[in-house]
Amino acid sequence: MDNSEKIIPIEVSDQELVLRAQQHDRKAFDILMERYQGRIYALLYHMTSNKQDAEDLLQDVFLKAFKALPKFKGNSSFYTWVYRIGVNSAINFTKKRKRKQAMSLDDLDMRIEHDPALVQMSSQDTPDRSLNLKDLQIKLNAALQTLSENHRTVVVMHDVQGLPHHEIGKVLGVSSGTVRSRLFYARRQLQAELSELPL
């Protein structure tokens, strides 16, 4: 049975998959992609607010990972390593964008209507400031795009994806203190951009 037909059990560790992928087992690399492409896509989408760009970048990230896989020594987890490639790709991409790209947003999961934060916000809205979900999504993404790459990255990684400060620091190569400082000023800027919302 050749490698393409071998059935790899779901519970195989990343470490084992990486070792097999480094020995030219394409199926092992495909499984690694399947495991993490959702989270990496989310990072790229939140950084760019454009689903087409995020999808293209996702392909580039995995291509870079495949190319660099022989040099991967396992000093960090595979996910952290690919995530770091994703962060760098997103930052380089947004820096190179000449002008503000039109946003192209993903659809909203309707379970958002039951989110406590949204319920609280809705209870505070007035006829002048009524909350429309689509408008909220557009305003939130537009506000994110006004942040610098450094500020946007920490906000996406912490507030959207839930990474702790020290993990963010490791990925970005900065101290936890710098991460906290950037988060504080990024949220302050967002507060100013979203002042018309019933917060």
Binding site: Y41, A42, Y45, H46, K51, A54, E55, L105, D106, D107, L108, D109, R111, I112, D115, A117, L118, M121, L136, Q137, L140, N141, L144, V155, D159, V160, R187, L190, Q191, L194, L197, L199
Partner: peptide
């Protein structure tokens, strides 16, 4: 602001 940003997790790709 942090709880508002959390709402972005409801954005789902195709």
């Amino acid at each position: 602001i942090a709880s508002l940003l959390k709402l972005k997790t409801y954005e789902q790709p195709d």
